[in-house]
Design a protein around this nucleic acid. Structure first.
Lengths: 346, 346
DNA sequence: GGTCACTTGGCAATCGATTGCCAGGATCAC
DNA sequence: GTGATCCTGGCAATCGATTGCCAAGTGACC
């Protein structure tokens, strides 16, 4: 049966040396081969349906044309748009995406990165990093270009692309403050993620900047899940029954807050307002539709891929890019009740 | 700077020939090399941090250790769990996943498959196939092992893994029939997808088998999207104002049905019941929570990966596997209203 | 007419691992 | 003691594309 054509077959058909054929087919070598010859080679390649063997090519060139994408959990609705952005930017540049899921497990992250390195990926896009990930930190000194997405590792000196969470949180706080809320609760995510830290810091700063607002009441959830959000929101409500607005570290947690409110018999937004973060699909269809901070996931993916490509080959300094976020006001936020539950505890 | 160690370095350190080192490291060659020697080689490899160069290996072995995964749209919540299942099954077997998104575009599907073939993928998992996809049909005669997921190409002779949609639809019809619904509407997906056909055929059969039921009223949506579902549901309601239950080809369409009902001022489930298909994340949090047919997405991914691995190398006949589906009854279904809207048109 | 520069294309080495074949030595049986 | 058999490990070819170097050919210019 017909073996795949090689460059020698193409060369033979075009009546030239394989080296000539190789050069004729390489667009990076303009004018290196006479146009007439190059055209003959291209025609031969087309007739034969020739595609260069990537194994042979990368053996010689030391580049694989493959980028590893490490995600914490593809099932998390935030990630697919990012991966799509990455993938759609990389394909046209001749780069393919190897996707590895870590399930938020540091060990699996380590083995995924090791496996990806063993496969000689040209670059890595990592969305799974915890703030102290030794695995990721080690990448900074390695020879494979790396871009972090969404989750940063402070001080590691790696490039990073994410949404401008701080601005989003500021907008959210301003929004509820303008509605008249003075006692604000915050359900934060797990402390080992940079997103948690960024959002929490921004929250404190923004609340401090709102003259009428009391110090926010903060509780950490153990994970960015609905169940953890519910538990944290319960603890928060138990700690301070006077909060009239709860912001959540992300939409999953906000869903948990919804459940905790239902458990406590509190109506949203009549009695308590809720704000999420990320603008996951479908949160506009909840009851009530969730007010949340939208982050440009797809664009983040694109930007990460571009940044990575910039860094391939050349040795450029790490770069940080924050893309604009936007507060999407829906119906989970409203002015605080006049019959002041808040008043009780004053 | 230190170049990556090669098998020659390992061999030199262990005091053996590279060929011996290669064999010592190959677990498929048990006893080919004396255990003492093999241990020495393994130790050397470990000390040096040796990992074989995949390019060199696959150049020689003609296998890349890479599987292409072609999805129609990663953003569709049905797909991530499938991809995870595939990926988590393939990694431990030493296979990596190249993911390509086609955005439901036949041209992009064709170029993705071509690109994946050019990269010498060992196998392909395709979730994007339309019933008549020439691209996919051509894979049946090619030399790369292929497994279709979720969407089949009838008569192509390719392996297929999906949910048992027909059983799911039968259960859904039985459910609404038992609730007392007699006039059933169906918002079907686009006709060029096998899932649409399977589900629609099952619907007709199941309704015909329910003695009390009239012929179902069917309208096709142009795509599996909320907007298309809404438009189709409107047409359906306009065509027959007497339906008391609407089944949808998938949950996206069901969301569209919800919107169309809201537009028409009809309450669900009091006036009209709705059933979806797929059990997407979050549909349990809609108002009302959606009754739908759950398909085992993650398991489908796993099964597809297993099937593919079975077919790698050996030339096995195509195989079809349907995994059990399950009707999840929530609150979007209820008995039809007694004040018979239906009665009006009788 | 001669020299020089430039263009074009060929030669052969190279990337790193795998594997068919072979040889030396040990083991065993007769 | 001799021959057959097995075990172990080495030799070298091979996979297919790329690229540094070189040589032949072409044209220009003085």
């Amino acid at each position: 049966m017909a073996r795949r054509p090689t460059i020698r077959d193409v060369a033979a058909r075009a009546g030239v040396h394989p080296a000539t054929a190789s050069r004729a087919l390489n667009p990076a070598l303009p004018g290196r081969i006479a146009e007439a010859t190059a055209a003959r080679v291209r025609a031969a390649a087309r007739d034969l349906g020739y595609t260069p063997d990537p194994a042979a090519r990368s053996l010689r060139t030391r580049r694989s044309g493959v980028v590893g994408v490490v995600v914490p959990d593809l099932t998390n609705p935030v990630l697919p748009p990012i991966v799509r952005g990455v993938e759609e930017t990389l394909w046209p540049a001749g780069l393919a995406c190897l996707v590895a899921d870590t399930d938020n497990d540091p060990e699996r992250e380590a083995s995924a990165v090791a496996e990806l390195a063993a496969r000689r990926c040209d670059g890595l896009i990592v969305a799974s990093a915890t703030r102290d990930s030794a695995t990721v930190r080690a990448l900074a000194t390695g020879d494979v270009a790396t871009v972090l997405v969404t989750r940063d590792v402070p001080g590691a000196g790696l490039s990073f692309v994410g949404g401008d969470d701080a601005a989003g949180v500021r907008a959210a706080v301003r929004h509820v403050a303008e509605l008249g809320h003075e006692r604000i609760g915050y359900v934060a995510g797990p402390a080992d993620l940079s997103t948690t830290r960024t959002r929490l810091d921004a929250l404190h700063a923004a609340v401090a900047a709102a003259p009428a607002c009391a110090r926010p009441v903060v509780r950490h959830a153990r994970a960015y899940t609905v169940a953890a959000g519910r538990a944290a929101a319960r603890r928060l409500l138990a700690a301070d029954g006077a909060v009239s607005a709860i912001l959540a570290g992300n939409d999953m947690l906000a869903l948990g807050v919804y459940e905790a409110l239902a458990d406590a018999g509190l109506r949203c937004p009549a009695e308590i307002s809720v704000v999420g973060h990320n603008d996951m699909p479908m949160v506009d269809k909840l009851e009530p539709p969730l007010t949340t901070v939208a982050i440009p996931q797809y664009e983040i993916g694109i930007a990460a891929a571009r940044l990575l490509m910039d860094r391939l080959g050349r040795d450029r300094p790490a770069e940080r890019r924050l893309l604009p976020t936007r507060l999407v006001v829906r119906r989970s936020t409203a002015p605080p009740p006049v019959t002041a539950r808040a008043g009780l505890s004053r």
